Amino acid sequence: MHVANLADRETFTTLDGSTIRELCGPSWTPARNQSLAEATVPVGGETIAHYHRTSEELYYFTAGRGRLRVGEETREVGPGDCAVIPPGIEHQLWCDGEEPLVLLCCCAPAYSHEDTVLTGATPPSAAR
């Protein structure tokens, strides 16, 4: 049995600029088909627009307030919201609240830098 505790995990920064603490993934656990991590976007921060070639992502928001853009659609997100992000669809996060935007991110197949394509595009519809 493999059990990890979030408090014991070291942070790293993904290509999109978010801070991650990976709870489970193939590089160091028995998981073979997915990964689970806690991601944080600081107050006033945003991720770099990007997409994943093969990974489907689930974002489950646990703290903070912000906006999520998936494709051409942007909406406000906060604790309790869960979003599905299909592979190949550009997405981006903004933290608009007074505390960091925190989410659990499940990727299948597991997250990898090689699967991430940075686009840097922010469509006018996502602007405040």
Rank of each mutant, 00 (worst) to 15 (best):
L103V: 06
D115M: 00
S55M: 12
G120S: 06
R75Y: 07
S35R: 01
E57S: 01
C95V: 03
R69D: 00
T14V: 08
T19V: 04
G66C: 01
L23W: 08
G78R: 12
E90K: 12
R65A: 02
H113E: 13
V43R: 09
W94S: 02
P79C: 15
R75S: 09
T116D: 06
E72F: 10
G120T: 02
T29D: 06
P87N: 13
I20H: 03
G120P: 11
D8G: 00
T122F: 02
T122K: 13
E46W: 03
N5Q: 08
W28M: 05
V117M: 01
A121Y: 14
E99D: 11
V102F: 02
A49P: 10
H52N: 07
F61V: 12
Y51W: 10
E10I: 13
G25L: 02
G45R: 11
N5H: 08
I48A: 09
G120Y: 08
L23K: 04
T62L: 10
V117C: 00
A31Q: 07
F12N: 09
T13R: 14
M1D: 09
P86L: 03
S112R: 12
P100C: 09
L36N: 05
G64H: 04
V84M: 14
I20K: 03
G17H: 13
P79Y: 04
Q34H: 15
L118G: 09
D81R: 08
Y59N: 06
V77W: 15
A31S: 13
E99K: 10
E57Y: 03
D16N: 10
D8V: 09
T19Q: 06
P87C: 10
S55G: 00
G64T: 00
D96T: 14
T74I: 12
I89E: 06
L104D: 13
E57G: 04
E76A: 15
L58A: 09
A121H: 15
I48H: 11
I48W: 11
T62G: 07
T116V: 12
F12I: 07
A39N: 07
L103W: 14
A110I: 11
G64E: 07
I48M: 11
P124L: 00
S125V: 14
F61L: 06
A49I: 04
W28P: 01
T14L: 13
R75H: 08
V43S: 07
Y51L: 07
N33V: 06
S18W: 02
E114Y: 00
S125I: 02
S112Y: 03
G17D: 11
